[in-house]
Design a protein around this nucleic acid. Structure first.
Length: 771
DNA sequence: TTCTTCACGCTTTTT
DNA sequence: GCGTGAAGAA
């Protein structure tokens, strides 16, 4: 008798198993509807994870299936970890043996390791990350004599990823798309790249899924085995699946049709990396007889927040449609505030946070969610100035840092000497006199002889092919590798890593580095050796980092304001949420709109919906009049999304204080916001429109090198005949004939102005007189 | 081989 | 405005 059936009997003895406690009728239906396909449409904050984990608990506890016969797929390792923990919390040891709970990629890798030969790989294949992928593609492009400045490896990598997301092998790439790269050689390069991967016994992330599909498609016995094995299949965040993942699932689910997918079409925000909202919109057609269960009761946010979010998302056309409701009390309206510029916005947010803190609330209950990571800088600067504790979530990932990748390359070389990409990465890091020319020489010879770089290097140092420092350096490098491999047998892998970093001169190189980042890099390497300690062997560690590009650094529990992108915020929640930068061009992002038009606009809107629904008690949107983007000042307009928020749930407030023009403004919502009113034609008083000068922006404005100041703006809107209005160097001016310019010198009433368009300087009398 | 200088281009991000 | 990356100089 297994432990499972004991706990099962214990469960059966009780009328209502505890994992069903506190579930509402819809959630309960989602848990207990076990036969046939199920689509759980779960709006934000409706207890989706709770229902999903309870469903797994239910399957296991009722004995419907053994844990190893349940396939549960997520997108991120974090989600997989959380799911496992929560199922364990619900039913205890019965959850052990959930060996098929993980990400699409990890599950694919698991299948491939068992049957690697069937797709032309060896079972110990390596998994390349984006960086390896790009370096390999660069080689392919060079080998084909293509201008790599015109056609970058990064661009090609993007195309290939896109094709792989759509499960397109090189022969299936549509003609017109292949023509988009290097004059029609896109598909050919893709094919060459795939050949190179095979030679290297390597996969990129897309390959994991693609090879798994190939494995299942071309081996009916393997497919039948998995179809039979997986009694129940569960998929989290179904709205984020791409075509390849859809095909993967369809193959596996075809047998028993016991597929339960959970998602929210309104929270699909990864279209740009291949996610197809269509998959969830189409589910009922793909799986006839599917039961659709909607979770609409929200346990997270106040009615005002839900109202604002619902109003916004209702502007989208392609929706399955849900109406979130809550019986939580009213709370405050969503605040919308206009500010002068990004700095003022950061000041405003920081002030709010301090007030929140003074009211006895913790910092960690507040989050700032931005559209793009460059927006974080202003907040960080302000927070640092005030000594306000904050934490950037996401950002450059630990395992993608150069020093960590270098260390890994050394370790990979110890584990398998034929890892060419690793060899190339560190053969001259730190510098040992083995430059590009030498590496090229080795690579050409290795390719010709059909051996690995390391092996060819070994051969070449015995000949006279290489001379001087190159030969000495390479010789020492190879001898080092040999010695480390020998030590690897007796030394624990953490100590081995330290030894390698020391003896290779890598730590010395960083110590000699005077740049401020060097110290951090050394810390990161320490962190690396520490995190290796959690694994028994070097091999186990490397397998882990290849798939799980994240390290559990256990820094939870710190009381800090959370600063992150909207994308990173999905699945999280806070009582107080700031949503800055709601301006056209920024959010919705102009780039997204340029690239994918209406489709992108809807996705941006969903992003706004995700942002709003993160808030439990208070959501505070803000927008600026002037924004520094890539070091250039621009005037910006409030986001169209602000207009789409239902007024009944929104409170518009001004914090500028300087430009309160009240009822005269075009839209009372922006009443207090000077520049907007100006743009809208509300005017700043009769004197503003003086002959020849349509508009004089404050210092700053278009393309200036310093931010506009309130004082300068006030000066420029001085009453008519204001020939005495004084300008400062750097002020922006606009002239009918010459367009925008900036003041380079002031002499009495004469201004020297450099006009942007004309590219020349002109001296003009004063701002009331046309030049 | 390595150091220096100029040009370019720039979201979101997981595996 | 800044970091990367490629081409020329030492």
């Amino acid at each position: 008798m297994t432990q499972l059936s004991i706990s099962q009997r214990a469960m059966a003895a009780r009328p209502a198993p505890s994992y069903l406690d506190g579930l509402n009728p819809e959630q309960r239906a989602a848990v207990e509807t076990l036969d046939g396909p199920v689509l759980m449409l779960a709006g934000a904050g409706t207890g989706k994870t709770k229902a999903l984990t309870a469903r797994i608990a239910h399957i296991l506890a009722t004995g419907a299936a053994k844990p190893w016969l349940v396939l549960a797929v997520t997108f991120t390792n974090k989600a997989a970890r959380e799911m496992r923990e929560r199922v364990e919390a619900l039913i205890g040891p019965g959850a052990q043996g959930l060996s098929w709970l993980g990400t699409f990629h990890a599950m694919s890798a698991q299948m491939l390791r068992r049957n690697a030969e069937l797709v032309g790989l060896k079972p110990n294949f390596t998994i390349l990350d984006t960086d390896d992928q790009i370096r390999l593609l660069k080689q392919v492009i060079q080998a084909e004599n293509i201008d790599e400045k015109r056609w970058t490896a990064r661009h090609l990598a993007g195309l290939i990823d896109g094709w792989k997301n759509r499960a397109l092998t090189p022969d299936k790439v549509p003609q017109d798309e292949a023509y988009g790269f290097a004059g029609g050689r896109g598909a050919k390069l893709y094919a060459i790249y795939q050949d190179r991967l095979k030679v290297l016994n390597a996969c990129d992330f897309g390959d994991l899924l693609l090879h798994a599909i190939t494995l299942l498609r071309s081996n009916p016995d393997v497919l039948a085995d998995y179809q039979d094995r997986f009694r129940y299949i569960l998929v989290d965040e179904y709205q984020d699946t791409n075509v390849a993942q859809y095909l993967w699932l369809r193959l596996l689910a075809q047998g028993r049709q016991n597929l339960c997918v959970v998602g929210d079409d309104d929270q699909s925000i990864y279209g740009w990396r291949g996610a197809e909202v269509d998959n969830i919109l189409r589910f009922e057609r793909d799986f006839p007889g599917a039961k659709v269960i909607k979770l609409e009761r929200n346990y997270r946010s106040t009615p005002h927040i839900l109202g604002a979010a619902s109003g916004l998302i209702s502007a989208n056309a392609e929706r399955l449609g849900k109406t979130l409701w809550t019986d939580l009390p009213g709370g405050e309206k969503v605040l919308v505030r206009g500010v002068w510029d990004g700095e003022a916005e950061a000041r405003l947010v920081a002030d709010d946070v301090e007030q929140w803190r003074r009211a006895g609330r913790p910092y960690k209950d507040a989050a700032v969610l931005v559209r793009a990571s460059w927006q974080m800088r202003a907040f960080e600067e302000r927070f640092i100035m005030l000594g306000l504790p904050y934490k950037v979530v996401g950002g450059p990932r630990f395992f993608e840092r150069a020093e960590i990748r270098d260390a890994h390359a050394y370790l990979r070389l110890i584990a398998s000497e034929d890892d060419d990409l690793a060899f190339e990465r560190v053969v001259n890091t730190p510098k040992r006199g083995v430059g590009d020319t030498t590496v090229q020489k080795i690579a050409t010879a290795a390719r010709a002889a059909g051996v690995t770089l390391a092996r060819m290097a070994q051969t070449l140092i015995t000949t006279d092919e290489l001379k001087g420092p190159a030969r000495t350096g390479l010789n020492r490098f190879l001898a080092d590798l040999e010695r480390w491999r020998a030590r690897a047998r007796e030394l624990p892998h953490t100590e081995l890593a330290e030894l390698i970093l020391d003896e290779s001169g890598y730590t010395d190189m960083l110590r000699a580095d005077k740049s401020p980042q060097a110290a951090g890099k050394l810390d990161n390497l320490k962190e690396l050796t520490r995190s290796m300690g959690a694994f028994d062997t070097l091999g186990a560690y490397l397998e882990h980092v290849q798939l799980v590009m994240d390290v559990d650094r256990g820094e939870d529990g710190e009381d800090t304001v959370q600063l992150m992108t909207l994308h990173a915020a999905k699945g999280l929640e806070w009582p107080l949420v700031f949503l800055p930068g709601w301006e056209e061009e920024v959010f919705p992002s102009r780039r997204a709109l340029d690239e994918s038009g209406q489709k992108a606009l809807e996705e941006e809107r969903r992003l706004g919906y995700v942002g709003l629904t993160r808030a439990r008690e208070s959501a505070r949107i803000s927008f600026a009049a002037n924004r520094q983007i890539y070091g250039r000042w621009q005037t910006v307009l409030p986001s169209r999304f602000i207009d789409e928020l239902p007024e009944t749930h929104v409170e518009a407030v001004s914090d500028t204080g300087y430009f309160d023009h009240g009822a005269g403004a075009a839209d009372s919502r922006y009443a207090a916001w000077g520049p907007m009113a100006m743009e809208a034609g509300a005017g700043f008083g009769s004197g503003y429109q003086s002959p020849g000068w349509k508009r004089a922006q404050a210092s700053g404005g278009f393309g200036a090198s310093r931010p506009p100041t309130i004082e300068a703006a006030a000066k420029l809107v001085a009453p008519s005949g204001a020939s005495d209005a004084r300008y400062g160097v750097g002020d922006r001016v606009f002239h009918d004939k010459f367009g925008y310019g900036s003041v380079t010198a002031v002499e009495g009433a004469k201004l020297s102005v450099a006009f942007d368009k004309a590219g020349e300087k002109r001296v003009i009398d004063s701002f009331v007189k046309a030049a």
